[in-house]
Design a protein around this nucleic acid. Structure first.
Lengths: 244, 244
DNA sequence: GGAGCCCTTTGATCCACGTCAATACGATTT
DNA sequence: AAATCGTATTGACGTGGATCAAAGGGCTCC
């Protein structure tokens, strides 16, 4: 392995085949040989400092990005300045799919903390996925998953009340942390109340009040961005027991 | 094949190469030879009567569907009965992409009027798009377009007021009718106020009131489902001139 | 390790939209 | 042509979340 020079070490360390995120990411379902092919395609890694843009709305689309470390938000901004956070992305998730349709990105991707992504040149990905069936299929699944996720957000924004939205958000975060080997019940949010509010279609004050309410009711322990979920079933009940 | 009988006539008539929707649909960007290959893949057409399901949430995913005639809505339903319309689809648009991610559909697709779809078996589409680069790319664009569209709806639901949402909806419908060769200013909505409301995250009464308000202000002429847009710039102004 | 600034919390008040209710309209059936 | 039922409109009133405001706390960056 890391036998002679540091550069090699780095490359081996960051190869898809060695990456502990591969089961959440593009390499899922590929056999070792296919993963190697994918590895060759991943052009470079790119570090993005907190608050910096990975890409901006309007940028020419050339690549999609797999998050190796850190986390991001995506948002859309209207001419009049209003903006809407369209998602929060964690390690192993793919950014940039919005750009395929027009060859230009249609949203902004901003790092919530110092982060690192794998740059996957899109035309080469299409090329390889014409040869590797399992890669093609996994890529399609990832795009479809994004569509399904968006439908969930539409449900949330269109028919849930403030506390339900926040409960759904917390349960979703918990589940995604779990999938990454972290605690399901205790985690650190990387985004502000304002960003959560934008995502959930609420004002930051409303988010803050809902957190306080959850705390009063013993559902969670909140300390700024540090969250401890005390009563998962209680949160789930909040979601489904809504009298119509 | 079945060369002599009327069925042949039907098949020729409904071939992608003869279809006037091909520029909105999967065949876009393919050369004639490639369109023929796609034609062979389109298994069958299926007629769906008004109010009937094309597929239901939970159904096994096997195919995507291109709308040949008519229109659909898709919705998601929670256990407690609340539902959210996630989209309205018109001719040339593709339904079913939500099913790729889990091999099961995650929403319902319901015909808003008597309709007809082309059934595109998905595994065969993946197979052919491994051979036909332009088909692969067009399919990716269609999926990406869906993601971008969803982001637009999230913006709408998360940061717009009732009248802005309805204005955005009307302008969107107008644009899509235009793309299909119909009048940009006069059209017939196939969905109820309740369905529009669900899509826009509003109650049907609010939708109705917003329509009445637009009428008072001379922006549109509304007669039940028949809409005549009188002042497109006025509607657009409603969208962007929102004081933050 | 301290200064400054952004983030968060909490309270008081307001208003856009939801809810409830009654009526009217139009399409379809008989 | 009358009866029926789903759809739409309109009014009166209630409320959940927005807005405005102020104070405190914790990061970040020197």
């Amino acid at each position: 392995m890391k036998s002679v020079i540091p550069v090699t070490t780095l490359e081996i360390k960051t190869a898809c085949s060695q990456c502990n995120l591969r089961e959440l990411c593009l390499p899922f379902g590929l056999d070792p040989n296919e993963v190697d092919q994918l590895d060759e395609l991943v052009g470079s890694r790119r570090k993005i400092k907190r608050q910096q843009h990975l890409y901006r709305s309007g940028d020419v689309f050339e690549a999609i990005y797999a998050i190796r470390a850190g986390s991001f938000k995506t948002d859309v901004i209207l001419e009049d300045g209003r903006d809407q956070v369209t998602g929060f992305q964690m390690t192993g998730e793919v950014l940039g799919l919005d750009g395929i349709s027009t060859e230009h990105h249609s949203c902004n991707a901003i790092a919530l903390e110092d982060s690192e992504v794998c740059v996957i040149p899109f035309s080469r990905l299409e090329e390889l996925s014409r040869q590797v069936e399992s890669l093609q299929h996994q890529f399609h699944k990832i795009m479809s998953r994004e569509i399904v996720r968006d439908h969930g957000v539409m449900m949330l924004l269109g028919s849930m009340r403030a506390e339900e939205r926040l409960a759904a958000f917390l349960l979703n975060m918990s589940q995604r942390f779990t999938a990454r080997g972290f605690s399901p019940s205790e985690f650190h949010l990387r985004m502000t109340r304002d960003e959560i509010g934008s995502y959930l279609g609420l004002k930051l004050e409303t988010v803050s009040r809902a957190f306080s309410r959850f705390q009063e009711e013993g559902l969670v322990a909140v300390q700024q961005k540090h969250i401890r979920i005390l009563d998962t079933p209680g949160l789930k009940r909040l979601l489904n027991h809504h009298a119509v």
